[in-house]
Design a protein around this nucleic acid. Structure first.
Lengths: 226, 226
DNA sequence: GCGATTATTTAGTGCGTACTAAAATTCGTT
DNA sequence: AACGAATTTTAGTACGCACTAAATAATCGC
């Protein structure tokens, strides 16, 4: 459909793209984001991304060096953080107020973030007491566009046997994985201890709330611990 | 933008169009809805409506007799009522839970109704105790697609001097008018008495909560009283 | 009943978003 | 340094949704 973005004039696909660039830039510590990475993240053909990227560059939201990748401009970063704030406030509201499971809010927020006004998001945030993080432990940007992007700790897969910590953030949008992690008790705020770590990308053996748990290496990468 | 409708595969403009057809069919007591009426209601060029109408007819949501107008099919009616339910539940939630003014919820709901899932709407409705009407007095369709479309009383403009009644519904989506009516105390549930009615489409003189009020004829048409 | 007005549809355009297939560029390796 | 593989962009297509201008059908008034 022709979506009706509430602010600026950004379409939903454009907002999604900016969000993805923000995230990939962050997880690559500021390196330029490639077309391919974006295509994978957004589940689009690479050629489609090139088209989107051109439009965003025309609007001054990103800098695009052909064949070299893209980078957010200051105004692109602001737009990305606005969308991220919407997304995370909505996710938190759905879990805390409306009783959604944490594994199901992502898809819902993914649509609502493009339709909700700033006022609605601010009212939701106020109801929640202006929380600093969403249900997955991700920081929520402020109304003014600030964000507390700490180092966010280390991945569970990097801890050595015997190390302890508290789950700070779970970097995953896949409902099945989130549901599985929740069933193991691995959610933000919970204390964990690495009992054993098999080498060469083997599984991680954990102690969570007195129970013994085994987590595969891919999953362990997405769980950040402090 | 290319919007991402949650159900079926209906785009936001298509849902808006079905809703408009439903409403116009109802207010014309079942007569076929003309392209022109739709164009005015949706604020589109007539030619754009013809295009939309064709697509909806291809999908079996409406019957279109060229040059003769359109009618909802059973499945079109169901789709319209789904959207109407979303819209009205969201409006009610925004007013009752999030403290929005009744004059500002329409635009917000107009966008959210295309993004919210059935589950979200049902949870909102449950939180509100499954209300029967929205803040403007309009009936909310049930989850199953039923709706209590009573005669909804008579318009304020049809009452004779001396008649009394209770405001049941205010048929208006214009924020300014709603704000004005609210400032006069004319909201659903309030008792009113017509003191005098000037002939030939003149203003209506009212008594509302002990105060004397004057309302123009266009506005008086939109206030339904029982 | 026929002409003029009005309503509606068709024709042609543009924009955004997606796609596949082909061309261009960059990168890695020998 | 140069070839081949991978990545990226261009070219061409399609669809939805909007528009204006022109053609066609229905309706109203005499």
């Amino acid at each position: 459909m022709t979506a009706l973005p509430v602010q600026g004039a950004l379409t939903a696909p454009a907002e999604d793209c900016l969000k993805a660039i923000y995230d990939l830039e962050r997880s690559s510590h500021g390196a330029a984001v490639t077309t391919n990475d974006l295509a994978h993240r957004l589940d689009l053909a690479a050629a489609s991304v090139t088209g989107m990227v051109k439009r965003l560059a025309d609007q001054g939201l990103i800098d695009h060096a052909p064949y070299r990748g893209v980078r957010l401009t200051e105004s692109g970063r602001r737009a990305a953080l606005r969308t991220l704030r919407r997304h995370r406030v909505i996710e938190t509201y759905l879990v805390q107020v409306l009783g959604f499971g944490w594994d199901r809010v992502h898809a819902e927020a993914e649509r609502l973030e493009h339709a909700a006004s700033d006022e609605l998001v601010d009212r939701m945030a106020a109801t929640l007491g202006d929380p600093a993080t969403d249900p997955h432990g991700a920081p929520i940007p402020t109304r003014e566009g600030g964000i507390a992007e700490g180092p966010a700790g280390r991945a569970l897969s990097e801890l050595a046997a015997g190390e302890r910590g508290v789950v700070a953030r779970v970097e995953d949008e896949d409902a099945d994985r989130l549901r599985y992690l929740a069933s193991l008790g691995v959610v933000p705020g919970v204390a964990v201890e690495v009992v054993e770590r098999a080498p060469f990308g083997g599984p991680v053996s954990l102690r969570v709330a007195g129970e013994s748990r085994l987590i595969g290496p891919q999953l362990a990468e997405q769980v950040m611990v402090v």
